[in-house]
């Protein structure tokens, strides 16, 4: 009986998917042709981003200018999505000191610690600084070239994870523990929130902003965009590392 029902269920699922696909294809076929320069998507808004972003925000990269200036409220929400996601994962996976002692054995396997591997450790001595420098470059040049806080932060977070796997938890705990995580994330988000509050306030009230926009193609050209990219980078790298360590052992400390 159960097997029969399962088979029927699977068939119904496939039928549902096919009907849904058909409906979506009919809808999409009525959209304008792709790649056409006269499409409604290529309107005054995208034109404004392309022509004005380089001098209004100082960002040659129109995407950075758009997400950190014109549509900054979305991005402010987006960084906090990462933060609340970490909070939710903390609620789920955090284990306090005493509760970790009486875990069942099958859960202990999660806190399996890899043995020291000389080849990995030695090669990472060269690789990890390079990855860090690359990540910082991507963040710092987010307004001049492809990149920005999100991509650079993910690179740096990956470097932290690599470091943890090569040298073990004790070594990384010296500079990256739950305290530094909290303080860094919190400071970055507070800076982000307060800076944007100021910009929204002066923007909506048509006041003059005290933040200079040089718009000369240098690294300081873009007023708030560089500091905001750094804040976003800190938040993203912290989140990537915190999520990893939560899945690994349910907490920062041993």
């Amino acid at each position: 009986m159960n097997k029969k029902f399962n088979k029927l269920y699977n068939i119904l699922c496939v039928i549902f998917a096919l009907i849904f696909i058909a409906a979506m294809i009919i809808t999409v076929s009525a959209l304008p042709n792709i790649g056409d320069a006269t499409n409604p998507t290529n309107n005054e808004v995208s034109e404004k981003y392309l022509t004005d972003s380089s001098w209004e925000t100082g960002s040659l990269n129109a995407v950075s200018g758009m997400i950190l200036d014109y549509r900054a409220f979305d991005t402010l929400g987006e960084s906090h999505v990462l933060f609340v996601a970490t909070v939710a994962v903390f609620i789920l996976l955090r284990r306090d000191e005493d509760s970790r002692k009486d875990l069942p054995t099958r859960c202990l396997n999660q806190s399996y610690e890899q043995a020291y591997d000389p080849i990995l450790a030695k090669s990472l001595e060269f690789l990890i600084p390079a990855i860090f420098v690359f990540g910082i470059y991507v963040i710092a040049n987010g307004h001049l070239s492809p990149g920005g806080g999100f991509s650079g932060g993910a690179i740096i977070g990956a470097a932290f994870i690599l470091y943890l796997n090569a040298y073990g938890l004790e070594s990384i705990e010296r500079f990256c523990n739950s305290r530094t995580y909290l303080i860094c994330s919190c400071c970055a988000l507070l800076f982000y929130g307060l800076a944007k509050s100021y910009v929204f306030y002066v923007g909506a009230n048509h006041l003059h902003s005290i933040i200079p926009v040089l718009a000369d193609g240098s690294i300081l050209a873009s007023g708030l965009i560089l500091p905001l990219n750094i804040a976003v980078g800190v938040v993203v790298s912290n989140t990537v590392y915190a999520l990893y360590i939560m899945f690994r052992r349910g907490g920062f400390s041993r």
């Binding site: 995208s46 981003y49 995407v63 979305d74 991005t75 987006e78 993203v236």
Partner: peptide, 18 residues
Amino acid sequence: NPIPAGLVLTGIVVSVSV
């Protein structure tokens, strides 16, 4: 058009979180 690129960025971050 730069707008979809920005939207994709936001979408990726949200989907990583969930």
